[in-house]
Design a protein around this nucleic acid. Structure first.
Length: 286
DNA sequence: CGGGCCTCCTGAATGC
DNA sequence: TGCATTCAGGAGGCCC
């Protein structure tokens, strides 16, 4: 379940392993994996073949390999995506979707994704509102919470101007990017806030505290290599992260709150789940 | 146009 | 036991 820390772990690994290398053979083993590439599978292959990777960049959960022809290979991991750097003779993974080799031989890059919610696309770069060159599909994504240019005042103002619940706002990638269901629940627990709190009732101070906790929990996860719950997520070299043991709320239904001992509950939220402490994070008054 | 529900997908877990 | 159902969720589509 890659969120910002997990994607950053992959970005760092990829940057180390593929920067400076030139793609040679490209195979697309599942058309859905390149559904966001405008020109279709054949165009994807021809655009990528012969391109050299300059470096690997990221915004929120979006990652892209900057190529030397002013385009980028945008890679989103979705729910179950992995990017693996494998020996040329490695056995093909069951859910291998895209495989690329390089002119130097060495290793191959595998995009593996069981559910194929993620995917790859070669895109043009455009200048976004910050003056940064980003792929077309990333231009509308907000800066992420760990970006030094992230404007907390603007975030607070926009959050308080929305007519929704605070967790929905945290998950809105156009407001702040990188936060998913897991870190949203953790940030809310640390802030002693209920997910259903109307954004208009969140004080400026509380909004700043919430964002601070989101940054802290993601920074801590990043320090230990990202969160992992099962074999679906492994980093670029196939090594799992191990932050899951440090979670206070997410996935802890029926277990005691680490702060007050009350039993963590699980509630339906937007077709998924929210976990909270019923004592520390009581329901907002109606 | 903002808000929020639906859908895509596969496999593990659960239910009867 | 075995088949069917539920669940996981990122993000774009689409409806109101």
């Amino acid at each position: 379940m890659p969120e910002l820390p997990e994607v950053e772990v992959v970005r760092r690994g990829l940057d180390k392993w593929v920067s400076g290398r030139t793609f040679s053979g490209v195979e697309v083993l599942n058309n859905r994996a390149v559904r966001n590439h405008m020109g279709g599978k054949r165009d994807f292959i021809s655009r990528l073949s012969g391109a050299t990777v300059v470096r690997v960049e990221r915004r929120g959960k979006f990652m892209w390999l900057l190529l030397d022809d002013d385009s980028a290979l945008v890679t989103h991991l979705g729910m179950s995506g992995q990017v693996l750097v494998q020996p040329l003779d490695a056995e093909r993974e069951t859910h291998l979707r895209v495989r690329a080799t390089f002119t130097d031989g060495g290793t191959a890059m595998h995009f593996v994704d069981q559910r194929t919610f993620g995917g790859m696309a070669v895109e043009e770069l455009i200048d976004d509102v910050n003056g940064q060159r980003v792929p077309v599909s990333v231009a509308h994504i907000a800066l992420d919470a760990l970006d030094p240019r992230f404007n907390i005042d603007e975030f607070v103002t926009r959050l308080r101007g929305k007519k929704t619940q605070v967790k929905r706002a945290l998950l809105d990638q156009n407001l702040v990017s990188g936060i998913g269901n897991i870190y949203a629940d953790e940030a809310l627990w640390r802030s002693k806030m209920n997910w259903a709190t109307p954004t208009q009732k969140v004080s400026r101070a509380k909004a700043i505290e919430l964002l601070g906790h989101a940054k802290d929990v993601m920074t801590q996860a990043l320090a230990v290599g990202g969160t992992s719950f099962d074999s679906l997520y492994v980093n670029v070299n196939g090594e799992s992260g191990y932050f899951s043991r440090d979670l206070n709320a997410y996935g802890r239904e029926g277990e005691p709150c680490d702060r007050c001992g009350a039993i963590i509950v699980r509630e339906a939220f937007a077709n998924r789940s929210s976990f909270r402490c019923p004592r520390c994070q009581p329901k907002p008054r109606a």
